[in-house]
């Protein structure tokens, strides 16, 4: 495998890891506050549809992005009301949200656009176009660094850079702000936070809201940046892979980046069977590569390679003692 091919692979990795990363960080905020969220998949799908639909109708991708985030936030609100206000089972609520999105996107898309559950193709300002970073063209011919900067770092859509920037930002919010400290505390020991006079319900709703925004961006990225329109089931299990990445990352922001890049790389690798055969000398089964993230997650969960310990109060509704 030569240098140019490697760069191309890493370029694809970055593109494919972006939705995983955004969804994974979304889940991180929610789960760190003690709210399990297996509804990432559904929110991503709903956001993908709404962003593409609004971008197609208005021709403005930024309005599309806002609409996508809005759709995701509505589902987040349902999850919040069910699992925080009414102290329902968070897992069941997540399952319901996934089905709601899977069904509603197609029903609405069909009645709105009549294209078999699809939105019209987006073009021009209707989608996020790649941006060339400063000096990319001039530095292109500098050996090694030039191609890396031009091919790999420059030339992505703005949302890719947003996702990457979210990693240090998430770290800073969680570990360097008072809000972050409280957020983590609410996921470990909500009673103590309550005793300190801080609203558990408020903090958890804030976390679920941040989760909705981030996963909304992930969905919009799928439909308006990676692709030029929505098709049915386009999230294709990415919400679950993000969940797997979150466990793989042991609920930490920087590890989340590494896990998502790894899973993104696996997806990029499955597009190039010729490279795998070239490097290791025999054909690897495509299905095997596709499920590798899930198998790795089960192994991590089983504690064979370090132990993944979820936030202690995760999944439990908080009942104030009287």
């Amino acid at each position: 495998m030569d240098f140019a091919t490697l760069l191309q692979m890493l370029d694809a990795t970055l593109r494919l890891a972006t939705p995983l990363l955004l969804a994974c960080l979304a889940g991180l905020f929610s789960e760190r506050a003690g709210i399990f969220d297996i509804g990432l998949e559904g929110k991503m799908l709903a956001a993908a549809f709404m962003s593409a639909a609004i971008a197609a109708v208005t021709g403005d991708v930024w309005l599309g992005l806002l609409a996508g985030i809005g759709a995701s936030l509505v589902l987040s609100a349902i999850h919040g009301v069910a699992s925080i206000t009414f102290r329902g089972n968070q897992l069941i609520s997540g399952v319901a949200i996934n089905f709601l999105a899977a069904g509603l996107t197609v029903v609405v898309a069909q009645s709105w656009f009549r294209q078999g559950g699809r939105t019209p193709q987006l073009s021009g300002d209707g989608r996020f176009n790649p941006i060339t970073l400063p000096f990319a063209e001039t530095l292109r011919d500098v050996p090694v660094i030039g191609p890396i900067y031009f091919e790999l770092i420059s030339g992505h859509t703005i949302l890719v850079y947003v996702a990457l920037a979210m990693v240090p930002l998430t770290w800073w919010i969680l570990y360097r702000t008072r809000f972050g400290l409280r957020l983590r505390a609410v996921g470990e020991n909500p009673a103590a936070v309550d005793t300190a006079g801080v609203s558990v319900v408020g903090l958890r709703f804030a976390a679920v809201g941040i989760c909705g925004v981030l996963v909304g961006i992930a969905g919009a990225y799928l439909a308006t940046a990676l692709q030029a329109g929505f098709v049915k089931d386009m999230s294709a299990g990415r919400g679950y892979i993000a969940l797997a990445a979150l466990i793989f990352a042991k609920w930490r922001p920087w590890y989340a980046l590494y896990a998502c890049l790894l899973f993104g790389f696996l997806q990029a690798l499955s597009l190039r069977p010729d490279i795998i055969t070239g490097v290791i000398g025999f054909r690897v089964n495509g299905q095997f590569l596709d499920v590798l993230p899930y198998i790795l997650t089960v192994i991590i969960l089983a504690g064979f390679v370090g132990k993944a310990i979820p936030p202690r109060a995760g999944g439990q509704p908080y009942v104030k003692e009287r």
């Binding site: 349902i78 009301v81 069910a82 699992s83 009414f86 329902g88 089972n89 968070q90 069941i92 609520s93 399952v95 319901a96 949200i97 996934n98 089905f99 709601l100 899977a102 069904g103 509603l104 029903v107």
Partner: peptide
């Protein structure tokens, strides 16, 4: 699927 989701939501989570 929508109906199914609503049933799960109301009889389960809510």
């Amino acid at each position: 699927i929508v109906i199914q989701a609503l049933v799960i939501l109301f009889t389960g989570a809510l």
